[in-house]
Simulated scan of single mutants.
Amino acid sequence: MTTISRSRQPTPVRRASRDRVLALLAAFALGAGGAVFWMTRPDSIEQMADRLRAESALRDKAQIRALTEVARTTRDQLIPVLDGLTRALPAVSTDGVAGPGVVSVDDVAGWQKAADAAVEGFADPPSGETGTNVARSGLASAVRQVATAVDLYAAARTMTGSARTAVTDLAVRQRADALFAWSVGATALDALNVEAGYGHQHVFLPTTPGEGALTPDTEPEGSHHP
């Protein structure tokens, strides 16, 4: 008699065991893949930090541009004031003529009004990046010192003798300190503009070599050389 062989079918028990093994392997694969995903996915905190840094950089660029415009306006306001003080203060006069007879009371009142307006231009400053805050603070300090120099000179005009000389000397020193403080702030602002991509912006007040203030570099206005 010829025997016909039949392929053995897995028993229900063996089939169940195989299904469990396949299920475990699938679960392991999914679990390992999930672990890799969770280990390599961008961290949400880091993404938020990157977004905040980008927003801060854009805000700072806008503040640099705005501060540069304020500095230009302020410089134009202060140049007539400083020119007047140069004529009036003996230690800085360039034409050999100095003293209260050179300028009038109305001249001094006009300087005070211009200086006060310049101070007001730096009132209530926005908070920005450290470099921008430092540049703004340097310029604001210079403006306040110009205003103080004018007030000292105005006070000296009402005095006589040694008191007048002493207060006039203080006005001379205050004016020199104001020019130096402005030159520091203008130098910092120039560097910020280059870094922000706006190019060199030389918002300096005119000074003489003997006054010790920083002076602008020789790069052309608007150039992007560091």
Rank of each mutant, 00 (worst) to 15 (best):
R18W: 08
R144Y: 07
V143F: 02
E129L: 09
D60I: 06
G131S: 08
T132V: 10
A147Y: 03
T208H: 06
S93V: 02
L189T: 01
A178Q: 02
R53F: 12
E195N: 14
V103F: 01
D116K: 11
T74V: 15
R175W: 04
S137Y: 12
R53S: 15
V150N: 00
A147W: 02
T74L: 00
S7K: 07
G84Y: 03
A115W: 00
I45L: 07
V21L: 13
K61T: 12
A123Y: 08
L58R: 14
V194N: 06
R53H: 11
L189F: 02
G128T: 02
G161I: 09
E46G: 04
L205Y: 02
D76M: 09
L170S: 14
S137N: 13
A71I: 01
V108S: 04
L179C: 06
V119M: 09
P12E: 05
F204W: 13
R75F: 00
A71G: 05
R136D: 10
Q174M: 11
L82D: 05
R6Q: 13
P10E: 12
A140Q: 00
T74W: 01
H224T: 10
A191S: 13
D106Y: 08
R164E: 15
P226L: 15
S183P: 05
A66T: 11
W111C: 11
T168L: 08
F122S: 09
A196Y: 02
R41C: 00
S56I: 05
Q145S: 09
M39Y: 11
L78K: 00
L58A: 15
A27F: 00
M39W: 11
